[in-house]
């Protein structure tokens, strides 16, 4: 029974097995990214002949040269920046004041308005009525439409509202006694005090804007307005089946596979760049929102 080790032999074996399993999961998470990277910097010939599994073969940046010289790639990239940052700015500008007001007990009709927001978590009109509504509002094929149409969502509003509700009452009372107006109260007290929640929601907005493609596909017509994800979708998904296009790309230097891998890597890079700063907050965001989904 008595052991001078802090852990018994069984416990240590358990620890190693556990670490090994996690290692396996980590590797399988990373592998697709490494594979993509390897494909994107290999020659088209090496990839099409099935020689690239983990390490790149015949190192070349030809695929990137091809992608970066595509005018549409840059347009899509620029559009995505507009949608991501413009959209996030508008989202925060509408949701922060709204959630703040909803968190104040003196707002008359607060219960009703809160229910009105929460109800949309449970029920929404659906794809077709939403689309027809956008059409009626004249927001088809419009950058502004794509930005404003998805500015708020109930989950983020509730997350912000809950955070504002948790701000100790005396901060507000002290500011009121000092004569702060409602705007000053929000701007000088609540927003600085709620930075973690606001950054969390901001990051949620950025990530979802950056990654979304569906409504851009439905609402936009021209090529000039499409975001990166839609550009990716058109090339990766729609053209995969198109052998003619695929073979037209095939040269010794790059192939359809290396080009699509390069596009994907290029669109992942910004996510990887902000990922460390997101990480700090999403833990918080999850706990902020409790288990709310």
């Amino acid at each position: 029974m008595a052991s001078f080790n802090l852990y018994s032999r069984g416990d240590r074996i358990f620890g190693y097995a556990n670490a090994a399993l996690i290692g396996l999961f980590v590797i399988s998470t990373l592998y697709p990214f490494i594979y993509l990277l390897a494909v994107s910097i290999s020659s088209g010939a090496a990839v099409t002949s099935g020689q690239v599994v983990l390490f790149p073969k015949d190192l070349t940046l030809a695929a990137y040269e091809f992608v970066l010289s595509d005018r549409l790639f840059w347009i899509a990239y620029g559009n995505t920046f507009i949608y991501t940052f413009g959209g996030t700015a508008i989202s925060l500008a509408i949701m922060i004041p709204g959630a703040y007001a909803l968190s104040r007990p003196r707002l008359r009709g607060r219960k009703f308005l809160n229910l009105m927001v929460a109800f949309t978590l449970w029920f929404n009109a659906g794809m077709i009525p939403f689309f027809l509504n956008m059409r009626d509002l004249g927001l088809l094929d419009s950058r502004f439409g794509l930005i404003i149409g998805f500015a708020c969502n109930a989950f983020n509003v509730i997350l912000l509202r809950n955070f504002f509700e948790g701000v100790p009452k005396s901060f507000e009372e002290a500011a009121k006694m000092d004569g702060a107006s409602e705007f000053q109260l929000l701007w000088k007290v609540f927003i600085p005090l709620s930075k973690p929640a606001i950054i969390t929601v901001g990051l949620f907005c950025i990530v979802s804007r950056w990654n979304s493609y569906f409504w851009a596909m439905v609402l936009l017509r021209g090529e000039e307005k499409i975001p990166l994800q839609l550009y990716l979708k058109r090339i990766i998904v729609d053209l995969t089946a198109n052998d003619e296009f695929a073979s037209s790309l095939l040269t010794n230097r790059y192939s359809f596979e290396t080009v699509t891998a390069a596009i994907m890597i290029a669109s992942i890079i910004p996510v990887l760049l902000i990922y460390p700063s997101i990480q700090k907050y999403f833990n918080k965001g999850i706990t902020l929102g409790g288990v709310k989904e």
């Binding site: 004041p97 709204g98 707002l107 659906g126 027809l132 509504n133 708020c152 409602e182």
Partner: peptide, 27 residues
Amino acid sequence: RDWQLYLLVLPMILWFLLFLYKPMEGL
């Protein structure tokens, strides 16, 4: 007394009405 509060919540309420509730009419 609290008109500013109502002004703050107004854009969001309008948004919910226009983009999530008005489509329900289309149901």
